[in-house]
Amino acid sequence: MSTVMDRRTLLRDSSAAALGATALSAFALGEPALAHQALRTTPLPDPATTPVPNPPFPHGLDPAERAHLKTFDELDFDVFTHADWSRLGESHAPNIRVHWPDGHYTDGIDQHIADLKALFVWAPDTRILEHPIRIAMNEFTAVTGVMRGTFTRPMPDGNGGFLPPTGKKYAINMATIGIWNRRRGYMDEEFLFWDNQSFYAQIGL
């Protein structure tokens, strides 16, 4: 329990700059688990507007780190994209804590499935098929992705009513930080990040 609390404290108390500095330091030191096949000579375009190929897994991963990234690819490309919620337990602990971009969190896989299903009510073509950046180190993974969909069906407004569909498409960059249970092979905790203001603006709300 103390180890889990220490990890949560690290994430809660570390600024984005500090986490970024840690990653850059690892690159500078040649940490293989954080380096891609080759260092990029030009910046990536915006993956949400200019699709980029999924990169290979980083060099130097141990078997658990590679398994975590592989499982996460399957989570987004297969489980999430095809709304195959019966498989979510392959990547998520039964009592997983999930932190959402607006600051609230939920506990338990059943609640997480309900929240994910809600995305498909109004955008049944919701999907994630790109992971432009993949990082793994020990029990942590950090993966960026692009979530896409189209607002084609009424959206529940939370007050018993519905917002009419606008027919607008969205494509938002997102990042997920996962804390994995090495013994069991699934995430105990997940942090989701994306720009909600851009999200709502793109779908016309």
Score class of each variant (00 low, 15 high):
71 T>S: 13
107 D>K: 11
56 P>W: 13
38 A>D: 13
74 E>D: 09
92 H>L: 08
130 E>W: 06
31 E>C: 09
79 V>A: 06
52 V>W: 09
111 Q>N: 06
92 H>V: 05
134 R>A: 07
104 H>K: 04
48 A>S: 06
105 Y>G: 10
101 P>R: 00
31 E>V: 14
70 K>G: 07
36 H>Q: 11
93 A>V: 07
111 Q>L: 02
93 A>S: 13
29 L>E: 13
132 P>R: 01
63 P>T: 10
115 D>T: 12
49 T>N: 08
68 H>M: 10
90 E>I: 14
126 T>C: 08
84 D>P: 08
136 A>H: 02
102 D>G: 08
63 P>N: 00
28 A>L: 15
45 P>G: 06
115 D>Q: 04
68 H>L: 15
73 D>P: 01
111 Q>R: 14
64 A>L: 07
52 V>D: 09
38 A>H: 11
80 F>N: 00
71 T>E: 01
100 W>E: 12
82 H>F: 12
73 D>G: 03
127 R>S: 13
122 W>Q: 08
86 S>I: 00
82 H>N: 09
118 A>P: 01
87 R>N: 01
43 P>H: 10
64 A>G: 02
94 P>W: 03
30 G>C: 04
72 F>T: 04
66 R>A: 05
105 Y>C: 15
96 I>N: 00
81 T>R: 02
53 P>I: 08
103 G>K: 00
99 H>P: 02
54 N>G: 14
124 P>D: 06
116 L>W: 09
77 F>A: 09
65 E>R: 01
47 P>D: 00
64 A>D: 14
101 P>Q: 02
118 A>S: 07
45 P>E: 11
132 P>E: 05
112 H>W: 03
34 L>D: 02
64 A>M: 08
76 D>I: 13
46 D>K: 12
61 L>W: 11
136 A>G: 10
108 G>S: 02
32 P>Y: 11
108 G>L: 00
74 E>R: 14
68 H>D: 10
79 V>L: 12
102 D>L: 05
95 N>E: 09
93 A>L: 05
48 A>H: 00
129 L>F: 01
128 I>V: 15
68 H>W: 05
94 P>A: 03
112 H>M: 11
74 E>P: 07
34 L>K: 00
50 T>A: 12
98 V>W: 03
42 T>A: 12
119 L>V: 11
36 H>K: 14
131 H>T: 11
104 H>L: 10
48 A>D: 04
104 H>N: 13
41 T>G: 13
63 P>C: 08
81 T>W: 01
52 V>R: 04
132 P>S: 10
33 A>Q: 04
123 A>S: 13
29 L>P: 05
65 E>Q: 04
44 L>R: 14
99 H>E: 13
66 R>V: 05
134 R>H: 05
85 W>S: 09
110 D>N: 07
60 G>M: 06
44 L>M: 15
134 R>V: 15
